[in-house]
Write a protein that binds this DNA or RNA. Structure first.
Lengths: 216, 216
DNA sequence: AGATAAATATGAACACTGTCAAGATTAAAA
DNA sequence: TTTTAATCTTGACAGTGTTCATATTTATCT
């Protein structure tokens, strides 16, 4: 009967021996850790502790650390996709590109830890089919906008020159986000990683790169 | 006298107790490890072992692991700078940009481990004054080329619009190198990380981005 | 319902990692 | 030559991811 008492105490303290939905609890814990302290702060054991579970538990749900981090990255991509979706459509294709790019860079500045994770080959299993799915989903709007800016439809994308345009657009945006976040552009602009700066100056830069066309 | 004998044997086996120039030996060891297996293969202890020295030795020469990796990164930047310098000058500014970009991407593909290290804030001490020095040195040629392409001299760089041009140029190049190396552009082009592909297609892409001007 | 099978979490172990302090060894300076 | 300073070793510490036998709970079948 004594053992029963002890069991009950334990039960009250930590819900149950079987967590119920440990998998999503671990993903959430990892997600929070990365949001708060970046990948530096993350460890499999820290996530386990945060979920109130033993250090060996995660291995049963995710094969290894990459599995868990992949889930977090997918989550982040979905959020990015939402931010992109929330951008309104306009008739000025250059303005569309500006708005989408601003949304992207804003996401990066708001979620630096996640952004640094999302594209890391060593931490995320990019061969997971869901990765392709979700990364395309969050990039397709920019693809279309750039294609439209160059007067092409989405159907033309197999044509080399249109693919090249879109490739450049993606590269530029990704590069700008990187330079801004990691403050590698400090000798171009000051306060380059501040949100104010980005909202003020990024549209100008993009206006330069994709000039609005005269519609007489 | 027995101990003397043993001492001598040890002496013959590993040169001397005092290595002589352990600092550069460790940098070289780390450099080789990263060249062979990337950052994944690197560890402070592995570098120490490769240099034939005890695991605690590096701490005396570099405060911590970041110190050693910073040296390797600086080395890599110097090599990059050399590759950039080796690119000839032409009168066609667009062709200059193409040649410089090709040299950069080629370096990235030839030294993937180093490239992945060079811009990592968590592994390299970018506040080291030598970092700024050497990174500017390897970027200035592209700066000038882009400025010249837009018909500006280097003196104009404080002007916002010229800084924006150069910022975009840097971002695009950095982004392209990333997309190509990490094969994030696979749904644009195939075999995107092969050297053949880059030499064949990258100039086309850049010709698109920086069209050669008619000089009638 | 009761016994059996499957899923799930624990806890200890293993081989790593970077960092540190005490002591041994060598080189340089007095 | 003796003393001082620099250099390297050794052993320890806390931390990491991963694995495995064991304990516990849930689900399934008779």
């Amino acid at each position: 009967m004594n053992t029963v008492k002890i069991k009950k105490e334990i039960t009250e303290k930590r819900a149950k021996y079987h967590h119920g939905d440990l998998r999503t609890a671990l993903v959430q814990a990892a997600d929070e850790i990365i949001a708060e302290g970046g990948i530096e702060a993350f460890s499999l054991r820290a996530a386990a502790k945060r979920a109130g579970v033993s250090p060996g538990a995660p291995a049963h749900h995710f094969g290894c650390v990459k599995g868990l981090l992949t889930e977090v990255a997918l989550l982040a991509f979905e959020r990015l996709g939402q931010c992109i979706e929330d951008v309104g459509h306009s008739e000025d294709t250059a303005a569309d590109i500006r708005a989408l790019s601003l949304a992207f860079v804003t996401f990066v500045l708001n979620h630096p830890g996640h952004f640094r994770l999302m594209f890391r080959n060593d931490l995320v299993d990019r061969s997971d089919p869901r990765y392709f799915q979700v990364s395309v989903k969050s990039g397709i709007r920019l693809d279309r906008a750039v294609a439209a800016y160059h007067g092409k439809s989405e159907a033309d994308l197999n044509q080399f020159e249109d693919a090249a345009d879109i490739f450049c657009g993606m590269a530029t945006l990704y590069g700008m986000a990187n330079l801004i976040l990691e403050e590698k552009a400090a000798h171009f602009f000051q306060d380059v990683a501040s949100r104010d700066f980005v909202e003020r100056e990024l549209p100008k830069v993009l206006e330069h790169l994709y000039p609005s066309k005269d519609r007489t």
